[in-house]
Design a protein around this nucleic acid. Sequence first.
RNA 1: GGGCGUGUAGCUCAGCUGGUUAGAGCGCGUCGCUGAUAACGACGAGGUCCCAGAUUCGAAUUCUGGCACGCCCA
Length: 1166
Amino acid sequence: MSAPLKDSSKFRPVVKNASFPQQEESILEFWRDNEIYDKSLAQREGQEKFVFFEGPPTANGKPHPGHCLTRAIKDLFPRYKTMRGYYCERKAGWDTHGLPVETEVSKQLGIHTKEEIEAHGVEPFIHLCQKSVWTYMQEWERLTERLGFWVKLDSAYVTYHQSYVESVWWSLKNLFDRGLLYQGHKIIWWWAQGGTGLSAGEVGQGYRTVMDPSVYILFPLLDRKNTSLLVWTTTPWTLPSNQFAAVNESIEYVTVHDPELDHNIVFAKDLVEKISQKVKRELEVKSTEPGSALVGLRYKPPFDYFYKDTGDQTGELADGGTEHVAWRVTSADFVTTDSGSGAVHEAPAFGEVDYELLVSEQARFKRGQGPEMICAVAPNGKFTDVAPEYEGQWVKDADKPITRQLKDEGKLYHQEQYQHEYPFCWRADDDPLIQYPRRSWFIKTTQFKDQMVANNQKINWLPEHIKDGRFGNFLDSNVDWALSRERYWGTPLPIWVCEATGEMESVDRYEDLIAKPGATGMEVWEKAKAADPDLVDDLKVHKPYIDHITYDSPFESGARMKRVPEVIDCWYDSGAMPFAQWGYPHQGKEQFEAQFPADFISEAIDQTRGWFYSQLAISTMMFGEDAAEGQKSFEYPLPFKNCIVLGLMLSEWWEDEKDKDGKKNIYLSPEEAKSAPGKPAHKVGKMSKSLRNYRAPDEIFDVYGADALRWYFFAKQPPWTSIQYSERQIKESVPEFLSRLWNVYNGFFVEYAILDDFSPSSLEKPGQLSHADLAGGEGYRPVAERGELDRWIISELHQTLDVVVNSMDAYDNYGSCTRITAFVEALSNWYVRRSRDRFWAKDKTAPEKLDAYWTLYECLTTTAKMIAPFVPFLAETIWQNLTSVFDGNARLSVHLCDYPLAEEGLIDADLSRRMGLLRDIASSGLSARANAKLKVRQPLSGVTVVLNDSADQSWLETHDEILKTELNVLDVKYTTDAGEFVTYQVVPNFKRLGPRVGKLMPKVKKAFSEADGGAILAELTDTGKSSLVVEGETIELDSEDVEVRLQANEGWAAAQGKQSVIVLATELTPELVRSGLARDVNRQVQERRKSLDLERSDHIKLYLVTESEELAQALSENKEYLMGETLANELHQEPPSDSIEPVECEIGEALLKIFVAKDVANGNQA
RNA sequence: GGGCGUGUAGCUCAGCUGGUUAGAGCGCGUCGCUGAUAACGACGAGGUCCCAGAUUCGAAUUCUGGCACGCCCA
C-alpha cells in the first residue's frame, strides 16, 4: 500500500507484521537520541521529590531473569511517580566488594585457599578483583537499558570508589568513637587444614551424613556426695576444653541410684526409661527436682588441664557477691530432652550457642573477673601442649582415645554411635569442618534494637507480613553485627593500633591519614601506580597499599600505629549506600539531605537479612535519636518508607544427561524436552548460575520483547508471589494484552482513520491530549452529546483510571494491571466490535462516525499514557504515531506526559451497569444458540429476554439493535413475566439473614426451597414485605433479604445469564433460511475477494451462478444486502461474458459458482 | 531443629474483613464468526480448595495439630 507519507496530517500507516522486539529497539533509539529520560526529570525539577534507592547488584555474574523482575519493579514506580508530577532521581549503583568476587578470581587462578592467595600475592590478586567486578558490566548495562529500566548509569555509585570507601570509613569512625565498635570472638565454621573460615553458603554446600560418637559422661558434683550429673556430648574431643554444664531450668530432673556402680546419677526425668534401656538395668528414682535447683552446683570436669590451675578461682559479680568462674551448672533454654540426658557439656570455644552462654556468664561478673574462654586446640585443628596426652593429634582422630581414657577412668557412663548431618569442606571433601573461635570486630547493634524495632514499625512493607514476620522476628533476635572479615577485597577496617600500648584510633580520610605525623608507606602505592599507570586510583585505599601506611603513635613516643588486618562485611557497604552514594559527609551533603530517606525500594526476599537490615541498622545508628553529637538526625531515621519484597523466582527446566563435562543440567523448553533423546528429568528450583537452568534474558527480549516480560511480571501475580518463571507465560502475555491492544490501535483505528481521512491535526494545541486538550478539534463533539456507546467507553476509561491510580498509589501493580486488562478487553471486544458499522459508514463526515473516531482516539491516547509505566515501549510506539499528525506540537514522548486522572463528570455508573447487563444478555444469547445448534449466520425471528428485575428494562428496550446484530435475530422482547419459560427461585440472602435467625438458618433455607418463590416475589414487589413461618416463629422479610434466581425450564432453547434468561424462537421459516443462505454466500464472496488480494475499498463485479432454485431465490431476495456487503457495483445471476476465473463452493446443499472481478471503471468510487 | 511463607482446575495464578453455585488466563475438546483474520466469540470437560480436628446456623477463608514444598537461619 502506498501511503501518503508526505501528508503529515494523516496517520502513518504501520508496517504489517511489525515485531514487538524490533519496535522496541527503535524506541530505545528514539529515547537515546532525544534524551527523553533526562527530559522527564528536567521537567519535574523543583517539584516534590519521590526518592528511590537502587540496591546495588553485584555485576560479576551474568544477569538472570530474576534480576529482570527486580529491575522491572524498580522502574515501574519511579516512572509512574514521575508522570504523577514528582521529581524522581534514579542513581544506579554497583556492589563490588566481597567474597563472591574473590571466589570468582580464585577460580580463574585455579587456587582455593588463603595461603594460595598470599603465595600468588595480594597485590596482583586485588588488581584482578577490581577488574573482575566489571566483567559482566556491559551485559548488565545492556539488560538494564533493553528492559527499559531508566536509571542513571553514568553517575552510578561504586562501592570500591575512594569517595564511597571514605564515606563508609566516616560512619565506622563515628561508631568507633562512640564505643560501638569492639573486638570479641566469633565462633565460625573453620576449615582447619586450609586455615580459613567458610561462609554460610559454603558450609551449606558441604553437609554429609556421618556417624559420630554420642557419649554420656559422669560429672561428679562437688556439693553432693557420691552423685554425678550425667552430661551428654557428640564431640568427645571438646571435653578437654569443657567450661560449663547446662541444664534447662524448666525441665524436671531426677536423681537415680545405679545399683551396679552404687552411685547416684542426675539427669532429666523424661529420660529415665530411655537411659535405663541403654545401660540395660533398672534405675531407682530417689528424688525429683526442677532444673533450677541444679543451677550453680559445682562439678569436677573429666580433664583437669585447666581445672588444676583455676578450678577454685572465683570472681566478683556485677551486682555483688562472688562466684566460681567456671565448672558450674548453668541454665540454658536450648537444652531439651529430645536426645541425650537433659544436661549438656559446654565448650564455648567450639560452639556458637556455647559461646553465647560464655558471654552471658561473663556479663554477670565485674569486668575482667569472669571466665575467660579456654581452648586446648590450635587453629590447625590439633591439640596444643595444654593437653599433653593428645598434643599434635587431629581433633577428630582424638575422639576414640579420649573416649577410651574416660572409660578406663570410669567416667564414661554410656556410649553409642549416632547418625547426623555434618559439614565438610566443599573443596576438600575429606576435611570435616569444626567450629572454632576467631577474633572479630563487632558493632554493638543490640544497643539499638528497640530503636530498630520502632523504626521497622514505620515502614510500609509489601506484603505486610514481612514487618512482624520475617523481618520483625529477625530484629527481635538481634545479635551484634560481626563486621570484620579476614579477607582481602573489601573496605579496609579503618582502625590503626599502637604497637606498644594497643591503643587504637580510627581515621576516615586517606588525606588525613597521610597527613599524620611521621606517616610512611605511601610510596608502595606510588611505585605500583608508576609501574602501571592504568591502575585505578581507588585502589590506594585498599589492601595491600593501605596496610603499608603507618604513622607515629600519639599514645607512646617512638611507637608506630599500624592498621588492623581485616576488611569489613560487604553488607555494610551496601547498607551505607544512602549516604555513601554521595560521598557524605566529605562531599554531597546537600544531595544526601535531600535524598533521605527513600520513598521506595524493592528487592527480593533474600535481602531481609541483607540490604534491608544493613540499611535499617546503619541508618538507625547514624541518624537516630542517639546519633553522635552534631550529627543531623532525621525525623525518620529509617532508610526507606515503602518496600516491596519480591518473591523468589524459581526456574523450570529439564535435566539432560547428554552433556558429560559435569554440567549436565541444560535448559530445555517444554517443546525441546519432548523431542530430546532419552528422558530429560523435569525439575523446578532456584535459578542458579552453576545449574544453567534458565534461558538468558536476551533471548526473551529478542523473541517476545521487553514489554512482554514486564507485563508478565506486573500483571500475572502480585510481585511478592514466588513465581515459577516460564517462557510460556511470557509468550501468553503477548496475545492476551499487547497484541489485543495493538489490534485495536493498528489493525483498526489507524487503518480506518487513513481510509476515512480522519485526523485530529486540526487541534492547535494538542498538548498532551488530555480530555480538555481534545475539545475544539474538527468534528469533535463533547462527550455528553455523543452516542451511548461512546459515553459508555469513556465512562469505563475513567473508572479504570480511578482504580489504576488508587492501586498504584498503594503500590499495587497487580490490581492496576487486572483493571487495565479488563478495560482493553472491553474496548476491543465491545466498543470496537459494536462500533464497526460507524467506521464503515460511507459518509466520512457523519457526526456519528467522527464521534467514533474522536472517542477511540481519546481512549487510545489515554491508554497509552495509562500503560506507559508498565509497558513503556508499546505505549511510546502508539503515542508516537497517534501524535505524528501534529508536526511536533504534541508532547514529544508519552513519558513526558502527566499521568491521566479520572474525571468524575465522565463516569456514568448506571450506564456501566446497564451495558454490563446487555453484554451478559448477548453472551447468554450466543450460548443459547450454541446449545440449540443454531449457528449465528442463520437469522432467527426473535428472542425473549426474561429479566429478574425490571429496573433496567426500558433502557434495554432502546438497545434492541445491538442484540439484534449480535444475535442475528429480527426481534427482541423483554419481559419480567416468567411465563412458561422460566421458574423463579427465591433463595435467602445468607449474609443478611444469618446473623438474624442464627441457628434457625438451615430450617429457613429449607422453608425457602419449599415455598412458592413466585408468590413471595409477588408479595415483595407489591407490598415490599413478606414473611415465612419457621418452627412457629414468623420471620419478616424485605426485598433485601432474598435473592431471586431464574431457572430456564426444560425444553426451550434458552440460556441463563447472571440476571436474566434468554429464550430463542427456534422456528425457521423458508424466508429465514434463505436469508441465512445469503449470509453464507456473502461469506464466500468475501473469501474470494481476499484470495484475489483486493483492497478493502475495491469495488467489484459479481456473478453468482447456481442451479438450485432455493439458492437463486435467496440471492435475488437479498441482492441489495449482498451488493452492499461485498462492494459489488453489479450483481448478476448468470456467468460473465469475459473470462473470469470462477470458484465453486457449497451453500447449504446447493452448489454455487462465484465470479469476482475488480471493477476498474468504478473502483474506489466512494 | 527454629522462623517465615506457600499448598485452590492439566499449567500459571486470583479469591478483601467467614455467607451456601470457588474464579481468570492459558492449554485441551466441540462449535461458531470471517471487512480486526497468524485476530475474535460461545460452549464443554476438568476441583475431596493438602490432610485431620475445632469454632460457627454457615469455613477455601478463622483456630489447633499434622503432611508436603520453598526461603532464611541454625
